[in-house]
Amino acid sequence: MPLKAVRSSMSPDSAPNRDRSDGRPSFLGHGVGLRRDHFERVLSDPAAVDWFEALSENFMVEGGRPLDVLTRVRERYPVVLHGVSLSIGSTDPLDQAYLARLDALARRFQPAWVSDHLCWTGVGGRNAHDLLPLPYTEAALDHVVERVQRVQERLGRPIALENVSSYVAYRHSALAEWEFLAEVALRSGCGILLDINNIYVSARNHGFDPGAYLEGIPPHKVWQFHLAGHSDKGAYLLDTHDHPVIDPVWELYREAVLRFGPVSTLIEWDDRIPAFERLEQESQRARAIHDEALPRLAGPAAVTAAPAGRPAGLGSHP
């Protein structure tokens, strides 16, 4: 199917930290999601991780402890803002108040980048607070690309969009999920947050080849990886983020590193959250796989890896 070529409205100069030859933002190393269970631990001792991802909506508040914690974390580490309510695929109008809050948050914390999900979360002014799947059609593609461009113009920066785990699909989808994701990125100028576990979960739930997914994603658009655990419900996999990453997902991660090179990688663990040290172990395992796989890559890797736990400072990541 011919796909329309639409130029991105974002100039390359407006991208955050574009210090790689292929235009991707800086490689941050290996990080974990910042969760309240670990606030004290993260602030009291140096963490054996390179960066943190903060859930944007949790910090769209006026005061209190979460904002104070994020301020102090940001003084020590690079931070990425990761949202769950942009609802980029909804047919509702873009929520300008939400975008204003996200913009203010980004200006305050100067994240390495801002991300959300390739999905919709509500319609008719209501929010399911869940990541609902889109039909992968030309019409949906046009709709999403146009909205991504408007969001990027409003925020003054390109964003990254993540592939979601899904449990149902639409029979009238004309594109594979990875084709849709790749086209959104190529047409809108946004980056891709490739969730390796979500690829694995959706591949099982819909019967596609996760390797084909990786092959279909343009390497220069991939800014970040997510890794997480899931639950096997027998008839399907559920993206519960409450288990360690399983071996087949680690293997898929290794394949992703081989295909995409050094990509900032984050461990998500959102339920039955263990001690922070357990997350550090998961992150170290990701680092080991990454370090083992990288020398196999042909050609020079145009990146500078970040040493673990390096201080960032609020002004160091414009």
Binding site: L55, N58, H117, V164, H241, D270, D271
Partner: peptide, 9 residues
């Protein structure tokens, strides 16, 4: 609020 539970199912 909401447990900071991210996007887990």
């Amino acid at each position: 609020h909401g447990g900071g539970s991210g996007n887990a199912a």
